[in-house]
Deep mutational scan, measured.
Amino acid sequence: TGEEYIAVGDSTAQQVGDLTFKKGEILLVIEKKPDGWWIAKDAKGNEGLVPRTYLEPYS
């Protein structure tokens, strides 16, 4: 379980453990880390770190 967020920009994984996503994708945020990198899952079930500045709450 988690909260749904929509990507407001494209982000390409810079290192192992990062999640690549495109603008408009809905991501499920699993954990919000205080350093600004959140753990999220995409629609295909891929999981990784995403920069919170690229996400907005999805409603």
Rank of each mutant, 00 (worst) to 15 (best):
V50H: 02
K44T: 09
G9D: 12
L55N: 00
K33G: 11
I30E: 02
D10L: 03
K44Y: 14
L27T: 00
P57V: 07
P57C: 07
L27E: 00
S59Y: 13
Y58D: 05
I30P: 00
E4V: 14
E25W: 07
G9A: 15
L27R: 00
S59T: 13
F21S: 01
I30V: 09
Q14M: 12
I30N: 02
A40H: 00
K23I: 08
E31V: 12
L19R: 00
A7E: 01
E31W: 09
D42H: 02
P51E: 14
E4G: 05
A40C: 15
V16Q: 11
I39A: 05
P51S: 13
T12P: 13
A7H: 02
K32F: 06
Q14I: 13
P57I: 07
G17R: 05
F21T: 02
W38C: 03
V16L: 12
Y54Q: 14
I26Q: 03
Y54C: 15
L19M: 05
I30G: 02
E3R: 08
V29R: 00
W37H: 09
W37K: 10
I30A: 02
G2Y: 14
K23A: 09
A13P: 10
K22M: 08
W37N: 11
K23V: 08
D10G: 06
P57S: 07
P34I: 09
A43G: 10
P51H: 15
Q15P: 05
Y5K: 01
I26E: 01
T20Q: 12
V50G: 02
W38D: 01
W37G: 06
P57M: 06
A7I: 03
K44S: 12
T20K: 10
G17H: 06
A43N: 10
I26K: 06
I26S: 03
V29Q: 00
L28W: 12
T53V: 12
I26W: 05
D42R: 01
E4H: 14
I30M: 09
I26H: 05
D18M: 15
E47V: 15
K33D: 06
D10Q: 05
S11G: 08
E25L: 02
T53E: 15
D35I: 02
R52C: 15
G9N: 14
Q14Y: 10
D42M: 02
F21Q: 01
G9W: 15
D10V: 04
K44L: 12
F21H: 01
E4M: 15
G36D: 06
A40P: 00
I26Y: 04
V50R: 00
Y5S: 00
Q15C: 15
A13Q: 09
R52P: 15
G36A: 04
A43F: 08
V8K: 09
Y54T: 08
W38V: 05
D18K: 14
D18I: 14
I6T: 04
K44A: 13
S59P: 13
E47T: 15
Q15S: 12
E3L: 09
L27H: 01
K22N: 07
Y58G: 05
G2H: 11
E56A: 09
G24E: 02
L28S: 06
Q14E: 12
G9P: 01
G45N: 05
D10H: 06
E4C: 15
D18G: 14
K33R: 14
V29C: 02
G2A: 11
P34R: 08
Q15E: 10
T12A: 11
T1D: 11
K33T: 09
K23M: 07
E4Q: 14
T12M: 12
K32N: 02
T1I: 13
P34Y: 09
G36F: 04
G36Q: 04
E3T: 08
K33F: 11
E56H: 07
S11H: 15
G36W: 03
E47W: 11
L55A: 00
I6E: 04
V50P: 02
I6G: 01
K33M: 09
A40M: 14
K33L: 12
Y54L: 15
L28N: 06
V29A: 02
D10R: 03
L55F: 05
V16I: 12
V29E: 00
I6Q: 06
N46P: 00
K23Y: 06
L28V: 10
W37F: 12
W38Q: 00
A43Q: 10
L27S: 00
